[in-house]
Design a binder for these strands. Sequence first.
DNA 1: ACAATAAAAGACAAATTTATCTTCTATTGG
DNA 2: CCAATAGAAGATAAATTTGTCTTTTATTGT
Lengths: 143, 143
Amino acid sequence: MFSKTCEYAIRGVIFIAQKTADGSRIGIKEVAAGIDSPEHFIAKILQELSRKGIIQSQKGPTGGFYLDAQSRKHTLADIVHVIDGDQIFTGCGLGLKQCSETKPCPLHNEFKKIRDAISKLLRSTHLGEFSEQLEHKLVFLKR
Amino acid sequence: MFSKTCEYAIRGVIFIAQKTADGSRIGIKEVAAGIDSPEHFIAKILQELSRKGIIQSQKGPTGGFYLDAQSRKHTLADIVHVIDGDQIFTGCGLGLKQCSETKPCPLHNEFKKIRDAISKLLRSTHLGEFSEQLEHKLVFLKR
DNA sequence: ACAATAAAAGACAAATTTATCTTCTATTGG
DNA sequence: CCAATAGAAGATAAATTTGTCTTTTATTGT
């Protein structure tokens, strides 16, 4: 469904949201350990999300990653869009570029329903929700 | 959603179903041209599906690929299962191996609905349906 | 039996994704 | 201002997926 990179991205951001609900920052090593991912790999991913304004980062001592008020309004769809592009939102299930409403592949309408369900889910899940969850179930972000 | 290999597989089998609805056989070159895929690549995919009994093949002159009565009862789910495994049917959307009903990831229940919709679609689409379609819209299997 | 045909199989190569390692830059506290 | 800290960035490498090429095997019609 998502690339591995995107899976790490979502897990990482959820972890950050949960761990920095009080406005504090969290270091990359802690994130990597928290979601059981390669440190430098998740670092690059978070840098990308930071550049795009989906999350915030701060260099130097006491630095780390966190979410500001604006970021908490972002959705999972924003993350997926930055990392995997819009393939999952608009792409044909059979990988056909020319597939469209007017020239549909044999499964176009069926796939459309599923794509729409995925889009709706991702667009309606805001990052702030994860900060607000009382029971974080952190262990379940590890593989 | 699917690997490229799996996309080719589905497109290839639909094409074969449409082209051999009369019980005839179709050569690998024609299939490759028909779905705009690398010849040897789709060949390997169809060989695998043939070994697993999802489609039939015949060597030698007048040989080629086709579907028998039994194969027409197979579903898209069977193809996906052979090529991509059961990840799409049962896997966690965030790639977590330990994610389950009792230890769910933060998106488990939401992803479950989507997985179920995909499963239902794939399991309910039988290969025979494509043989029976009057208007084949063959061009829409090409990229 | 023989030559032609077409799928099967195996080796190899390119491309993409995933992961690692090293160096650079910004920030903080003393 | 300096040393320590921590993210940013770039280069490199491993693994996986995708694609290509060559040889083998089975089948057919003559």
